[in-house]
């Protein structure tokens, strides 16, 4: 019963974007165990975001199954959506609102009660060092502060799985350090992290499991140590180039 113990279980996944074979999947299988810090890497257009969107139910697969904590994503939207938090690359929040107001609103949409919303809002504003600006509009914030609000929203309901799409892009070293440390702290309490980024040095610090994607296929999946050893590479960046090549992959 693998699906019972897996945080994410993907079997025979098929998906095709009309007119874009590069971002299509055929019979893809993937398993992420509970408590893993799973990194999904690949060049632009490899299908990382598409796969993450399928895992979070934003896109419907053409075939196969995706299950989070043993519950199929398709057909159990509300049950599954309680389980995970989503931290998108864009600042998907209300810039006209303060961090406190954003957290209150998204907390309600995650189904938290009034007391829990208040308590978690307070905790997260402290953890993210936003207490002093709790009532200021987010649109006045720096990129790093917005990233912290964006992350706080994704974790307000204490999810068991967090999907992170480039959570530290465009931030300074201090903010990146704080975010990575916070994610490691959450993971130490049992939260599964599903992470994608082009910041490979950061990924090396954060991830214990790695999957490399290229042209809609998972070309390697193992623990970071095993992959480095198997491919005789010193770091994740070297491994990335070894597995996906040096050719530009930008697509129009």
């Amino acid at each position: 019963m693998e699906s019972v113990v897996s945080a994410v279980h993907i079997s025979n996944l098929t998906f095709r974007y009309p007119g874009n074979d590069a971002a299509s999947f055929t019979d893809m299988n993937l398993q992420v165990n509970k408590g893993d810090r799973f990194g999904l890497f690949g060049p632009n257009g490899a299908g990382k975001t598409t796969l993450m969107n399928i895992m979070t139910g934003l896109i419907k697969a053409d075939g196969g199954t995706v299950a989070l904590n043993g519950v199929k994503v398709d057909g159990h939207k509300f049950r599954v959506n309680h389980m995970f938090g989503f931290v998108p690359q864009d600042f998907s929040l209300y810039q006209e609102l303060s961090p406190k107001e954003n957290l209150e609103f998204f907390g309600a949409w995650y189904g938290l009660d009034r007391q829990t919303i208040k308590q978690r809002t307070d905790e997260l504003l402290t953890v993210m060092d936003l207490q002093d600006v709790r009532n200021k509009q987010v649109q006045l914030f720096s990129g790093g502060m917005k990233r912290r609000v964006n992350l706080a929203i994704g974790v307000i309901h204490n999810p068991s799985i967090i999907f992170l799409d480039e959570p530290t892009v465009g931030v300074d070293v201090q903010t990146r350090h704080a975010i990575v440390n916070y994610l490691l702290e959450l993971n130490s309490k049992g939260t599964t992290l599903i992470y994608t980024s082009h910041q490979l040095s950061e990924a090396q610090d954060l991830c214990n499991q790695v999957a490399m994607m290229d042209q809609g296929k998972i070309v390697a999946h193992d623990s970071l140590d095993n992959l480095l050893h198997a491919h005789e590479q010193e770091d994740l960046e070297a491994l990335f180039l070894n597995l996906t090549g040096k050719k530009f992959r930008d697509d129009v």
Binding site: F86, S92, F106
Partner: peptide
């Protein structure tokens, strides 16, 4: 603004009907 900022997408990942 909500569409472009991605708020709609985030709300879609939440256990609440968008009709709300």
């Amino acid at each position: 603004r909500e569409k472009v900022s991605g708020s709609f997408i985030r709300l879609k990942t939440m256990p609440t009907n968008f009709i709300v």
